[in-house]
C-alpha cells in the first residue's frame, strides 16, 4: 500500500505565559492508504495534538508533513482549510454538531465550503451518507433531539460526506454508553472494510485492538507501533 501520510520529525510547542510546553517531540510516522490505526496513551501525552496536526487543524512548530504526496507543513490557513474540506473527515468525542442546524444541514457543511459542488450532488450525497449511518429518518431533526449515539452517527456521516482520504476520530466513543459505542465502532469497522483510512485516538484498549495497527504515545513521543493480530478486517478497496 502507498503512503498517504508521512510525518518527519514533527514537533509542536505551546507558549503560555512564557512557559513553553512541548506537546510533540520529533514524531515520525507513515500511514498507508486503507490503513486503520489507533493512537493510545495517557492523558496529556500529545495524542490529540498529533491528531490536530494530522487533520491540519494546527501547524507544526518543526518538521515536515506530506499528505498524499503534498507537503502541507507550511500551508496558509486558507490552504489548509481547502484541504480539510476535501481530503479529511473528522469525528470528535463531543460530536461537535452545530446546534442551530438540522442533521442534514450539519452533514452537508463540508460540501458547502467546496467550490463547484452542485446542490443536487449535495442532496444526493447527504442522503447517501445518512443512509450509510442509518440516520435518514432523522434528517430534519436538530442535534438536541437526538441521543448521543445518534449524534455521533451523524458526525460520522458528516466525516464521510466529502469522500475524504482519511477519517480522523478523536475518542469517538468517549461520550457514549457501551451499546452506542459498539454501534459506532462497528460503523468504523464497516468503513474500514469498505476501504477507508482511519486514524482513531482512544483510551479504550478494546477499541484500540479493533484497528490493524496501534500506536502508543508517551510524553509527546511515539513509543509503540504494533500490528494487531486480533483485527480481522482487511480493506476491500482504497478510499471510501
Amino acid at each position: 500500500m502507498s503512503a498517504l501520510i508521512t510525518l518527519e520529525n514533527i514537533s509542536k510547542s505551546f507558549l503560555t505565559e512564557d512557559i513553553e510546553t512541548r506537546a510533540l517531540q520529533q514524531v515520525s510516522l507513515t500511514i498507508s492508504q486503507g490503513e486503520y490505526l489507533s493512537l493510545t496513551g495517557q492523558s496529556g501525552c500529545g495524542k490529540s495534538t498529533l491528531l490536530s496536526l494530522l487533520g491540519l487543524l494546527d501547524s507544526p512548530t518543526k518538521g515536515q508533513y506530506w499528505l498524499a504526496g503534498q507537503d502541507v507543513s507550511t500551508l496558509s490557513r486558507n490552504e489548509r482549510a481547502a484541504i480539510r474540506c476535501k481530503k479529511i473527515g473528522f469525528v470528535f468525542q463531543s460530536f461537535n454538531l452545530i446546534s442551530d442546524l438540522t442533521v442534514s444541514e450539519n452533514v452537508m457543511l463540508p460540501l458547502t465550503y467546496q467550490s463547484g459542488v452542485t446542490s443536487s450532488y449535495i442532496k444526493d450525497k447527504v442522503a447517501e451518507v445518512l443512509a450509510k449511518v442509518e440516520m435518514s429518518h432523522r434528517a430534519n431533526h436538530y442535534p438536541s433531539q437526538l441521543s448521543g449515539g445518534q449524534q455521533q452517527r451523524v458526525a460520522v456521516a458528516r466525516a464521510l460526506v466529502n469522500t475524504p482520504d482519511i477519517i480522523l476520530a478523536d475518542e469517538p466513543t468517549g461520550n457514549l454508553d457501551s451499546k452506542n459505542a459498539e454501534a459506532v465502532m462497528s460503523l468504523f469497522d464497516q468503513l474500514h472494510q469498505d476501504g477507508a483510512t482511519i486514524c482513531m485516538v482512544t483510551h479504550d484498549p478494546k477499541s484500540a485492538k479493533r484497528a490493524q495497527r496501534s500506536l502508543e504515545m508517551f510524553d509527546g513521543q511515539l513509543v509503540g507501533d504494533v500490528k494487531n493480530t486480533e483485527s480481522n478486517f482487511t480493506p476491500k478497496a482504497v478510499g471510501v
Binding site: L57, R77, A81, R84, I98, L109, Y113, N162
Partner: peptide
Amino acid sequence: THEVGIRRAIGATDLS
C-alpha cells in the same frame, strides 16, 4: 467560538 472551530475543522475559510 466552538462552532467556528467546527466549521473551520471541516474546511470553512476565514472569508466564509
